[in-house]
Design a binder for these strands. Sequence first.
DNA 1: AACTTCCGCAACCGCATACCT
DNA 2: GAGGTATGCGGTTGCGGAAGT
Length: 300
Amino acid sequence: MAASQRSRSTAAQLDVDDQAAADQLMTMMRRPAAVLQDEAAAEEEASAAAADLQLELRRGPWTVDEDLTLVNYIADHGEGRWNSLARAAGLKRTGKSCRLRWLNYLRPDVKRGNFTADEQLLILDLHSRWGNRWSKIAQHLPGRTDNEIKNYWRTRVQKHAKQLNCDANSARFKDAMRYLWMPRLADASQLGDHHGYNSTTAMGDAHGMPVMTSSSSDSFATSESYDGGLYANVQDNEMVNGGDYWMQAANKGLCSNYESEQLHPHEHSQFQDPDLVGWVQGFSEGLSENFWSLEDIWKM
DNA sequence: AACTTCCGCAACCGCATACCT
DNA sequence: GAGGTATGCGGTTGCGGAAGT
């Protein structure tokens, strides 16, 4: 779904009448969260008893008012202690629900919009190493949530795997990713295209907020934990072309299962599974030219 | 125009782990 | 160490809009 498309949670309730509330929400979301204050704890205790009376909990999509309440409360009292926070804020939601809403949607630093080439490349690389460790992967994509990455994987990557009649976790599909998809993403990255495919048209999100399709250069520049990784190579513009990119990636041990001479598919068709040679080459001739075009990759 | 199918994503659920008393 | 609670994580669901017929 395009970044500009309204989210499910707000599509139903965000009409003209809600615009003022949405504007207020926008403003609040930009406020830095204050540290948790001691008096807040006292407030929470006092309100907990009263809140016990209102046992009916809301579920489903969040309203703008609920968002506002949550953002306001966190701005004043900080996040954490979600169950008591939910009660103290007067939200008829579980602490879990509040936490999820905040982390996945309301946090000021949540980046929305399509994944850039860098981000896609990083996701593919990290997933090949860690599997479905979405939270761990998300730690290396500033502003992206595990939920978003998980959805990306399920809707885009697995869709292509399905079209190829193979499992997304199969060695065959991983090879296709390594030898066809990732090099092209790396090339795109080298060309300086750090924006999502439809970023130019994604001017606003569900709340009318500007979609943060900031360049990955900006966002990744602050990543400190992924040292010496694939991303760092891309960001530092150390490599001039895809070949150098993969050579250096290999030298840094980033392509775990492959020797450096195996890394460039057009020069070395030495696959983990010999049967894959013809299979992958098939994609490089015929179908793959369309199937694995950069545009298709962006669209995924 | 009406209906159906497909797709993307927010939100929920269950479980595991961490933390506190 | 036991029990209870809070938090985090990954899998799954279901809604709403887009696309297709």
